[in-house]
Design a protein around this nucleic acid. Structure first.
Length: 648
RNA sequence: GGGCUCGUAGCCUAGCACGGAUUAAGGUGUCGGCCUUCGGAGCCGGAGAUCGUGGGUUCAAAUCCCACCGGGCCCGCCA
């Protein structure tokens, strides 16, 4: 008698009983769907209906007397997991759960389903592509970008457990001008072998090259600027001064590399022109340009893979933006858009009229846009015939929909407008179903207090640095608490504790809220952190190890303490939380849930003996409860990619 | 200027999609306790909140609607 979702059994029973009473008492009233809420006070039961407040007006009766009548009309033979139903307050109907039966059902179900428990399967399994991370291959992944893979990977784990077929995609943006900048610098240095982690190495080349090229450009602009107004000159001078100070900073940090690049780049009369030429050559698929840019991009991506391996993240597909340019796909999408009534030409530039699509296809309600929310047009093709980022993304999205029913893009909310325009473009092309299933999972930025992160300027804290620091701090913590362990054991533990802490900290906050990065926040080892939950899991394991027996004869009716009952309720509700997290794409719910469960278990641990309980039957019941809790902690941690250790 | 988004104790966060109970939930910090019990990365208790402001809808608003205020972001032939 195992059930996938114990608490929903109880809810279903409440629904059945209340529906039956309604049919009997008020046959003329039709209710679409009964909903229940969890009472604020546990003395009011485990589920409550506020139905009578709504019905009261309609049938001109007081809510409370209606509640009383409904309870009287209930068929008590339908009570299995319900202990009693009672009218309460000004007109609630409270349902009290029968713990003697429910504890047994829940604990046994969990122990039976083990690592499958909680992962209620969807009725509508889909093929879903989750595109996440997609950091440009120009510099290491920094902490501001690291929230993306943490969220994306957790979403992937959650939706996969829900029964969907998930494919994790990384979109490599190698077509932009920036890629040509770094490739230009790399070539100027004669393609050196990295002297450090390859993405860090590429990042240095990128920052210095970009800075030198920028200074060169501004100087030339100033030389040619006799005719322009003086405020423009002032502006150029200000910009130049800024870049010169960045150059000084970079020269101080990387003197050798800086000098070499300066020497080489100075040989070019116009480096900017060289870069633009390289960019065009790459888009045209010229073999030499292809080889060069792919080489430097691969170098950087190699570093990304190393970083993601550390945190247990992998991808199923690495998609090169350039492949879509070189093949006919971007061109095809363009041609189809061009013949639609939504594209117009202005000064030799192709513009996409998103607003017109919305009007003609009446998309405003569907997209949830207000009446006065005007969506600006999107430039598709430059005057020189080359395409823009979002344009190429249209072709890429169509390609993704060849492989999947649904596409979820984990992309910062600063790109909300571009993502919206992209979605509208899919409607314009007639891909209505696809557009409906195109989801921009937007997340807010990670900022550093009093510090403006800028990859162009080389101002960032890399994700690797954060991981290193987290592991180092975890190592100190382990050494302090478990001095008896060997160095190797301490290292192993520090690794999953430090990394768990970072993963947890970056999914724990609602994705739409901004996160201010502080070391204290990310490297928290106390309550409401991965280490806290990991510790709790290890503690549960420790009890089970010490007990050294399977609970042969548990008597669940002995679990009468409020703490035990609360724990049963929490673990029986895990499938509900899991379903909510997957349906509404809210991985933070899992983090909150697992922390709340750990909290309650620690209180229980402190208050009631498991192994040395008064009787063998009670001890067995508590061992079984501890087993069930351990399973749920582990399953929940897995969803956010945090290791559940047996010892730490 | 237009749009999007966030605003809940000193600080960080949950609750808002789906409005409900004379106590708005945690954490951190602060003050005070718990080393006789299964791992103290723990547990218990105290103090700490005009839920940004003002209206409105409702029997009922942190939650829905409107206006305003404050922070962030976007409105490029950048990505």
């Amino acid at each position: 008698m195992a059930t996938e979702n114990p608490f929903s059994k109880f809810r279903q029973e409440c629904t059945d009983v209340l529906e039956q009473a309604l049919r009997k008492l008020l046959p003329e009233i039709k209710i679409e769907k009964l909903t229940f809420s969890k009472p604020s006070n546990p003395e009011f039961g485990q589920l409550a209906s506020s139905l009578c407040f709504e019905l009261a007006k309609k049938i001109n009766q007081k809510p409370l007397s209606l509640a009383e009548n409904l309870v009287k009309a209930m068929d008590k033979r339908g009570f299995h997991l319900i202990e009693k139903a009672a009218p309460a307050g000004a007109g609630y109907i409270n349902f009290h759960i029968d713990y003697t039966k429910f504890s047994k059902l829940s604990i046994q179900s969990i122990r039976h389903l083990k690592d499958k428990y909680g992962f209620a399967k969807t009725d509508n399994p889909q093929r879903i592509i989750i595109e996440h991370t997609s950091v440009n291959p120009l510099h290491p992944i920094h902490i501001g970008q690291a929230r993306n893979p943490m969220l994306g990977d957790s979403l992937a784990r959650i939706l996969e457990s829900r029964g969907h077929v998930i494919s994790r995609h990384y979109y490599i943006d190698d077509v932009g001008r920036q890629s040509s900048v770094v490739a230009y610098g790399y070539a100027a240095l004669c393609k050196p072998a990295p002297d450090s982690k390859s993405d860090l190495f590429v990042g240095r080349i990128y920052t210095i090259t970009s800075c030198l090229v920028e200074i060169n450009r501004l100087k030339r602009a100033l030389e040619l600027s006799h005719a322009v107004p003086s405020e423009d000159i002032a502006k150029l001078n200000k910009e130049l001064a800024e870049w010169v100070s960045i150059a000084a900073e970079l020269k101080g940090k990387f003197p050798e590399l800086f000098e070499k690049l300066l020497e080489q780049i100075s040989k070019d009369a116009n480096p900017e022109e060289e870069i633009n030429r390289l960019n065009r050559a790459y888009e045209d698929g010229e073999p030499k340009a292809k080889k060069l840019i792919r080489e430097v991009s691969e170098l950087c991506l190699y570093g990304f893979r190393k970083t993601q391996e550390r945190v247990g993240i992998t991808y199923d597909s690495w998609d090169w933006e350039s492949d879509f340019v070189w093949s006919s796909q971007v061109g095809d999408a363009m041609r189809n858009l061009k013949i639609s009534p939504f594209v117009f030409s202005e000064g030799g530039v192709l513009e996409f009229d998103a607003e017109k699509v919305i009007r003609v296809l009446n998309l405003r309600p569907k997209l949830g846009l207000k009446e006065d929310h005007a969506v600006p047009p999107l430039t598709l093709v430059r005057a020189d015939g080359t395409t823009l980022y979002t344009t190429r993304d249209i072709a890429y999205s169509l390609w993704k929909f060849n492989l999947a029913d649904k596409v979820i893009n984990v992309i910062g909310m600063e790109q909300s407008l571009a993502q919206l325009q992209l979605k509208i473009a899919l409607y314009a092309l007639g891909f209505e179903k696809e557009a409906d299933n195109f989801v921009h999972f937007a997340y807010n930025l990670v900022t550093l207090p009093g510090y403006k992160m800028s990859s162009r300027r080389g101002h960032y804290i890399t994700f690797d640095e954060v991981l290193d620091e987290a592991i180092e701090r975890a190592f100190e913590e382990v050494s302090k608490r478990s001095p008896q362990l060997t160095e190797a054991e301490k290292r192993r533990i520090a690794d999953f504790v430090g990394i768990g802490a970072v993963r947890y900290a970056l999914v724990d906050v609602d994705a739409s809220k901004p996160v201010v990065f502080t070391w204290d926040r990310v490297l928290n080892f106390e309550t409401n952190s991965a280490p806290y939950v990991q510790y709790t899991h290890a503690r549960a394991c420790s009890i089970l190890r010490k007990a050294a027996r399977e609970p042969e004869n548990p008597d669940y009716t002995l679990l009468i303490d409020k703490l035990e009952r609360d724990l049963v309720l929490i673990i029986s509700g895990f499938p509900d939380t899991f379903i909510e997290a997957s349906e509404y794409l809210k991985p933070n719910l899992i983090a909150d849930y697992v922390n709340a469960l750990a909290d309650k278990f620690n209180t229980f641990y402190n208050a009631l003996p498991v192994i040395k309980a008064e009787s063998q039957e009670l001890s067995d019941a508590r061992i079984a409860l501890t087993q069930a809790i351990r399973i749920v902690l582990c399953n929940a941690l897995n969803l956010i990619g945090v290791v559940a250790p047996e010892k730490m």
